[in-house]
Structures are given as C-alpha cells and as structure tokens.
C-alpha cells in the first residue's frame, strides 16, 4: 500500500475512475444475474462484467503499472484478449446446452427450431435429479 503515494495525481484519477467503472459494471451484471427471471435472460448478465467490467479494471491496472514502473506494462492485454475470446464460447455452449435440455424435457417456452413462437420463460418443472438422470444413461 505504500506505493500508492508514488502515483502522481494525473495517473491516480483515471485509475480510480476506471476501477470504479469496471467494478460497478461487474456488480450490475451480477445483480442482473440474480434478478432476471429465466435462464435465457440470465445469460445476458455476465457479459456486462466481462466486456467493459473487465476492460475498465484492466485499463486501470495498465495505467497504474505503466506509470509506476515507467515502462509500458502490457501484460493486461493478454488477459483482455483471453477474456474476449473465451467468454462468448462458454456462454454459447451454456445456452446451447440449456436449449438442448429444455427440448429433450419438453419444457414450454423454447422454440422448436422453425417455430416463430416467442417464449420468455423456460423455467423448469422442479426436477431434482436432473444431473444424475443424464449420468445414469
């Protein structure tokens, strides 16, 4: 915590701003994850944290380390690139898995492929052993 005093004001203010922006967006995304009603709405929530949420904190980290070590610290670009590439992949796989499960269990609200029906709520009838059921095949 001692190094924070070394940071000049022109660098400290943007760092603080981006930190608060990033963490605030991440928090809003997580609140959305908790509040939204159905799974397909909840899929949208974590992207808030992984786009500009992660971006803000990574920019803050870049500013801080670049000024402190007085050479460009570009490590953060690696994490940013990695997060940008991986998040869509995992969310897409999850959405497809959820669609597959809802279709095989015939839950309402999920479009059979060509159907134009709009459903918002893919909430399941409470099936407690949904993991074991697939495992036991």
């Amino acid at each position: 915590m001692t190094h924070a005093a070394d940071l000049p004001a022109w660098a400290a203010l943007p760092t603080a701003f981006f930190l608060l922006l990033g963490s605030g967006l991440t928090l809003l995304g997580a609140i959305g994850l908790l509040r939204f009603g159905s799974f397909y709405e909840r899929v949208h929530a974590p992207t808030l944290g992984t786009t500009w949420g992660a971006g803000g904190i990574l920019i803050a980290s870049m500013i801080c380390f670049t000024v402190l070590q007085s050479r460009p610290a570009l490590h953060e670009i690696l994490i940013a690139a990695f997060v940008i590439v991986t998040t869509p992949v995992s969310l897409m796989l999850l959405a497809r898995a959820a669609l597959y499960r809802d279709r095989t269990e015939n839950n309402g609200g999920v479009p059979a492929f060509e159907a134009e029906s709009e459903g918002t709520d893919g909430e399941a009838s409470p099936k407690s052993s949904d993991q074991k059921q697939t495992k036991g095949q």
């Binding site: 397909y40 949208h44 992984t50 869509p88 897409m92 497809r96 492929f113």
Partner: peptide
C-alpha cells in the same frame, strides 16, 4: 459473428443450423 453477438450484452447466440 457469434463472438460479436454473444459478447454484446443484451443479445445471445443460441443456435445455428
């Protein structure tokens, strides 16, 4: 396109035939 759509909050790519 899938990466763009999914990483934009508010839209999610679900299935492509």
């Amino acid at each position: 396109l899938a990466c763009i759509i999914t990483s934009t909050p508010g839209t999610a790519w679900v299935e492509y035939r």
